[in-house]
Design a protein around this nucleic acid. Structure first.
Lengths: 151, 151
DNA sequence: GTAAAACCTCAAGCTAACTAGAGGTCAAGA
DNA sequence: TCTTGACCTCTAGTTAGCTTGAGGTTTTAC
């Protein structure tokens, strides 16, 4: 509950977790990756300014878009002063990510069309099959696992 | 080189690797996952019937489509007699995978449109933002990493 | 016959994004 | 004051799809 008394106070991890919907351990993890920062009180416990909520919100949305944390971190670092993102920052980032999304959709669509063109052919030939030999890299990102990369 | 002498002989791992374009270790790995099988010679070395090339080709194409190995394995097992896939099998499987691809494209498109609708709004509100609260699960598969799953 | 190249198994490492648990400290309410 | 819950750090485990390396055997070419 927000009251005039605690409106300007800093938040604990538990509070940030509850309000943002991410686990406490995930917040620790984001901090270890440099995506968020915390101040510590005398007892070494994390205390967050309220702006962290907006930062976490942006992280979660970017994740839904399929942007890896490392890239989100880069984007956040690129903000002047390393400050919490404003509406203008969000506009810029979301426009950029929208273009990336477009690209991924295009690649998938291309692949699907090629697949449809090949249904029933069954050749799967190393030399002739467009499905096997398309030189394009599908921008679909995958950690460790290298799906859809050219072989 | 294919000569009448070795045309009907079985292939070694190295030969399958060279002809299919996948690493020897990857073939070992596929075998451990039950995606392919091998006979062994007296010296315990793997010997493959030529049909394995078609199987591997199908695996690689399915991977380009974003189908996880486990699911590819299921599909291959579902073939009667566990035999090498024929053109008819390929037709069936590719039609099914094409539908899955469609679904993924649709989800991504939906997300992109929602993102475009939100550019400039900057709210990212937990309660009101459609980007944060869309109840749909994006079918984008990701190992270990749980991107795009509902929170 | 011998040496090199290819093969074998098994264990561990890599990435991403976390979670779970151990063992201990801190803060807040009764 | 005491107890409970929230917090701390650090290590290890999870998933997928492999790769790398160690230590040893087999096949092949000369």
């Amino acid at each position: 509950m927000i009251t005039p008394e605690n409106l300007h106070k800093e938040l604990t991890v538990g509070q940030v977790a509850a309000r943002s919907g991410v686990a406490v351990t995930a917040l620790h993890f984001y901090e270890s990756k440099g995506l968020i920062k915390s101040n510590r009180n005398q007892g070494n416990q994390r205390r967050y300014p309220r702006e962290v909520l907006r930062r976490v919100a942006l992280i979660k949305v970017a994740q839904r878009l399929g942007i890896p944390l490392a890239e989100i971190g880069e984007a956040l670092k690129s903000l002047p002063d390393n400050r919490a993102p404003t509406a203008a920052d969000w506009k810029m980032l979301s426009a950029q990510w929208s273009r990336e999304l477009d690209e991924r959709i295009n690649q998938l669509t291309l692949l699907r069309d090629r697949l449809n063109g090949c249904i029933g052919c069954g050749c799967l030939s190393m030399e002739a099959c467009p499905l096997r030999n398309a030189g394009d890299v599908l921008g679909e990102r995958g950690p460790g696992a290298h799906w859809l990369e050219p072989t």
